[in-house]
Write a protein that binds this DNA or RNA. Sequence first.
DNA 1: CTGCAAGTTCAAGCCGACTTGAGGTCAAGC
DNA 2: GCTTGACCTCAAGTCGGCTTGAACTTGCAG
Lengths: 143, 143
Amino acid sequence: MFDIDIAELARRTGVKASALRYYEEKGLIVSTGRHGLKRLFAPSTVERLSLIALGRASGFSLDEIAGMLSGGAAIDRGQLRAKAAELDRRIDDLARLRDGLLHAVACTAPGLMDCPRFRGIARLAGRQAAAQPARRRFRAEPA
Amino acid sequence: MFDIDIAELARRTGVKASALRYYEEKGLIVSTGRHGLKRLFAPSTVERLSLIALGRASGFSLDEIAGMLSGGAAIDRGQLRAKAAELDRRIDDLARLRDGLLHAVACTAPGLMDCPRFRGIARLAGRQAAAQPARRRFRAEPA
DNA sequence: CTGCAAGTTCAAGCCGACTTGAGGTCAAGC
DNA sequence: GCTTGACCTCAAGTCGGCTTGAACTTGCAG
């Protein structure tokens, strides 16, 4: 297949052109050359970008992903296993939080803090929050 | 009980004094007064902080938490229910990712991208990442 | 040949949640 | 009464992952 330009790559992956340039600068993707000024990318870059997206969604930083992706297409399986275990822990935590929230909804105690179950959950969250910072929120789409 | 100073509150909650001042500035907690310059907090602030921690751990921003906490101790249960549903979705996503990572570890295809199952997962992650920015990572403890 | 949309570079800005540093104030212990 | 050290304020810095803006260059359609 023929190489594609940055706009097409953006269209196919849903990643903004500015982000793609940033990724190239970071070494996560490579352009095969230029047509005039314009970057050209191999169509396989689309797959590379879904791999990158997978990494991001799993909680890797761009630097980590860059490390994993350098060295051909070979990805460190041990690292993946570790990340899977980390995801498992996160899932457990979130499940406990969800249960806590749902209990809070259902609980008939006058104030939430009067419910011993909820207090327990809140204390739990306290310990976790002390150890781990919060997630980023959604960003509003620019107008 | 007697009011406690910021250092004691920090000790009891695991939240740094600087963060506590920040929370007060944002209206998340209130100090009952001063002893000289030093802030004094009611001991119940400890519980308020675990509530705040719970909110943070569930993915609320400080502003959202402030909104929920203002208006007495009453917390909007509908909002909680919505957040629980959101957590549920997140949990599902993470579970799928974890399965994908584990499959990647086990998969015997020569390159990961040669495995159709993994490609499917990667494409999925691609769509999700396009819609939602990544989470923040752990921060190293300052030396 | 010209106009222009779509690319380019580079530096600077933004987000949230804090942390850090400089310089100041105060209550308590000696 | 003086030192000390815990607290104070305020401005600025940090982090990652982009986005934005200004000023510029191209290839291609007309």
